[in-house]
Design a protein around this nucleic acid. Structure first.
Length: 485
RNA sequence: GGCGCAUUCGUCUAGUGGUCCAGGACACCGCCCUCUCAAGGCGGAGAUCACGGGUUCAAAUCCCGUAUGCGCUACCA
């Protein structure tokens, strides 16, 4: 446990959907906060009007809600957004940039984008070690600035990085990181449209919202010195930083849409459980130090430790996610699984109302250890919901022998005498029939499975028969005998 | 180009100077179980700990260099 009660924030931009990398950042923030009885706040960084996407915010809230990372504070579903949207806080940022300008720590810049591009080009051409703004507008007198402002000249406000000692970052994950002051550019704080850049809004909000720990992706490490300078110039306390390793594609580049799904909602639609997604993503860059890999959110909360977060990026490996998904399904009770089977039925050609719970529960029990996704209920065992319309040709070739029909006919004769047979009765009857025929059990088992399910894989054949029930079994075997020649 | 970060089996990782000729998990292979497929159990293969120098009686672990990868270098976040 850390000394103070932490307040952390997850601060995404509403650019369309929640990225799995964003999910990991949100999760680590949440886990850190909850492990230490702190607060997890959600703030929306929508200061880039060009990238704003309609509906993205609601989508984000919805996805966060789905995975169970409900913020303690932040915009709420349904429009009560509160003071957590940066675009609604413009005057606040203005106030503090004015203060910086007053102190000489920031200045108005009237350079056109064209001049900036030219500057960059010439610096590049001259092979200068680094490309930075040349502070031209810093030379403007107060009067000149006032005049240009009065004329409504387009301008930005820049951070005035002055020479001085190295800027030191104390990062929980990376330790000490140093930056030479002269490598830091005079960052734009307020854009010409009056909106703040990330850097300004971020520092102001983190301070005003009493954020104690800034936990964010590694891509922010390079701009952290600018933030430190801002805290310093404003006379504010600097929060703790923790820069998280990136999530990677298989080729170790930053996780991108081109190489697979990156939106949490994509995984949701594909049928991944929130539990396995959270479990998986938590393990990408963190481990408790023991061999435990199966976690629920509350267990993660208990075990999580920011100091144990990995420094290097982690490849998003779907194989392991799939495995975890199966594990989480296996760990659910039949009763808990039942509604999901019904959902899958209703999404398919079937109707959950056509089957009673007792029957479906048996299906769940039989299929549980064979699933990777809920949808496998339908894809791998539709025979529980309708008689097979065809029979797998390879299996027919392999299992349906010359005398199979004859054997099965004897088998159903024997079944017909039974009353409400279950697993054991089917088993005894089949064995007895095989014995009378003088053949191995397999001579009946395999054709029976094929006849009843149409395929060659699935739960134990006696379970299969017991679940389907006597009448259905007899009917299906008769049909199969007709159809398979 | 500059600045910064990183580097242990294919992948996720354990490991914080001796117990490591490196442990676990996924994937892969084999065996057992078995009516099939899974699940489960057992086992195998797979890492000269990026490379090169140091420090030390002793280094995956500490230091320096090199290489490679990645991030940033926007009036995007």
């Amino acid at each position: 446990m850390i000394n103070e009660t932490p307040r952390v924030r997850f601060a995404p931009s509403p650019t369309g959907y929640l990225h799995v990398g964003g999910l990991r950042t949100a999760l680590y923030n949440y886990l850190f906060a909850k492990h230490n009885n702190g607060d997890f706040v959600l703030r929306i960084e929508d200061t880039d009007r060009n990238r704003y996407v309609e509906g993205a915010l609601e989508n984000l809230l919805d996805t966060l809600e789905w995975v169970g990372l409900t913020p303690d504070e932040g915009p709420r579903q349904g429009g009560n957004y509160g003071p957590y949207i940066q675009s609604e806080r413009l005057d606040i940022y203005k106030k503090y940039t004015d203060e910086l300008v007053e102190k000489g720590k920031a200045y108005h810049c009237f350079c056109s984008p064209e001049r900036l591009t030219e500057l960059k080009e010439s610096q590049r051409a001259a092979k200068l070690p680094q490309m930075k703004y040349d502070k031209k507008c810093l030379d403007l007198s107060k009067e000149e600035v006032a005049e240009k402002l009065a004329n409504n000249e387009s301008h930005v406000i820049r951070l005035n990085v002055e020479p001085g000692s190295k800027v030191i970052i104390k990062d929980i994950i990376r330790g000490h990181v140093e930056f030479d002051r002269n490598t830091i550019d005079d960052q734009v704080l307020i854009k010409s449209d009056g909106y703040p850049t990330y850097h300004m809004a971020n520092v102001v909000d983190d301070h005003l919202m009493n954020i104690t720990h800034v936990i964010r992706g590694e891509e922010w490490l390079s701009s952290t010195p600018k933030h430190i300078l801002l805290y310093d110039y404003l006379g504010w306390e600097i929060p703790e930083f923790a820069h998280l390793p990136l999530l990677l594609n298989a080729d170790r580049s930053k996780l991108s849409k081109r190489q697979g799904d990156v939106a949490v909602e994509d995984y949701r639609e594909k049928g991944y459980l929130k539990d396995s997604l959270v479990n998986f993503v938590a393990l990408l860059g963190w481990s408790a130090g023991d061999d435990k890999e199966f976690y629920y959110l509350d267990e993660l909360t208990k075990a999580f430790d920011l100091n144990r977060v990995q420094k290097s990026g982690a490849v998003f490996n779907v194989d392991k996610l799939n495995w975890l998904n199966g594990e989480h399904i296996k760990n659910m009770s039949n009763e808990k699984l039942l509604p999901y089977l019904k959902l899958e039925l209703d999404k398919s050609e079937f109707n959950s109302g056509d089957f009673d719970d007792e029957y479906l529960l048996k299906v769940v029990e039989a299929m549980k250890s064979r699933l990777t996704f809920y949808s496998d209920f339908i894809e791998r065992s539709s025979y529980f919901f309708k008689a097979p319309e065809s029979f797998d040709e390879d299996i027919v070739k392999k299992r349906w022998k010359k005398y199979s029909a004859e054997y099965l006919e004897k088998f159903i004769k024997a079944i017909e005498t039974l009353e409400n047979p279950g697993h054991d009765e089917f088993q005894d009857t089949l064995k007895k029939t095989a014995e009378e025929l003088g053949v191995g059990n397999g001579q009946l088992i395999h054709p029976a499975r094929l006849a009843v399910s149409g395929i060659g894989v699935g739960p134990g054949v006696f379970d299969l028969l017991a679940i389907l029930g006597k009448e259905e079994v007899i009917k299906r075997i008769k049909t199969a005998i007709e159809k398979i020649k």
